[in-house]
């Protein structure tokens, strides 16, 4: 009867209609949304990617993107203190792409849209150089198919890593 069942409590049964046929679950993980929890989650995720046969270079890119996504949740969705983060990694057998889903119960993205992630400005005097704002630039540069949705109290971010023309440096 409710318009927003499930989904608000982290990873649940995979009943969604959009699951690709030839995809293998690599990881389902509940992460504590603080910097140490993110560290532990990244270690688990990179180990799972290696175990799934993802090569070291792609796993390194995945670790960078996952770190930025998870740090953003810690800093901006849960500014008052740690909350739970769900992380799901699924590998598409046909393309080799890693489909990533994160879920959290924190604050919504401002304007319900993802930040633009403009390239950092570096042609500046030293005293004016940026010390932040790199995260979304890195995410947008290295990930594909970013999609954000808020339903009820739950933020969901999905994106793909690899599996198509890899973003060069």
């Amino acid at each position: 009867m409710g318009p927003m069942p499930g989904d608000g409590r982290g990873p649940g049964p995979a009943t969604g209609p959009e699951r690709p046929a030839a995809a293998r679950s690599i990881l389902r993980l509940r992460i504590c949304g603080d910097p140490q929890g993110v560290r532990a989650g990244l270690a688990t995720a990179t180990a799972a990617l290696a175990a799934a046969g993802v090569d070291a270079a792609d796993a390194g890119i995945a670790e960078t993107v996952l770190a930025e996504v998870l740090n953003n949740i810690v800093e901006h969705a849960y500014p008052a203190g740690p909350g739970p983060i769900g992380l799901r990694l699924v590998r598409c057998d046909a393309t080799g792409a890693i489909e990533v889903t994160t879920l959290d119960l924190g604050a919504a993205m401002p304007g319900l849209t993802l930040p633009r992630g403009d390239p950092p400005r570096v042609e500046l005097p030293v005293e004016s150089l940026p010390e932040g704002g790199f995260g979304w630039f890195l995410i947008r540069h290295l990930a594909h198919g970013l999609a954000y949705r808020r339903r009820g109290h739950c933020n969901r971010l999905r994106f793909r890593l690899g599996g198509e023309a890899t973003a060069g440096g």
């Binding site: 390194g60 960078t64 390239p119 950092p120 570096v122 790199f134 630039f137 890195l138 440096g169």
Partner: peptide, 9 residues
């Protein structure tokens, strides 16, 4: 090095 290169730092 990749993070420095991508951000042009």
């Amino acid at each position: 090095a990749r993070v420095f290169r991508l951000t042009r730092m």
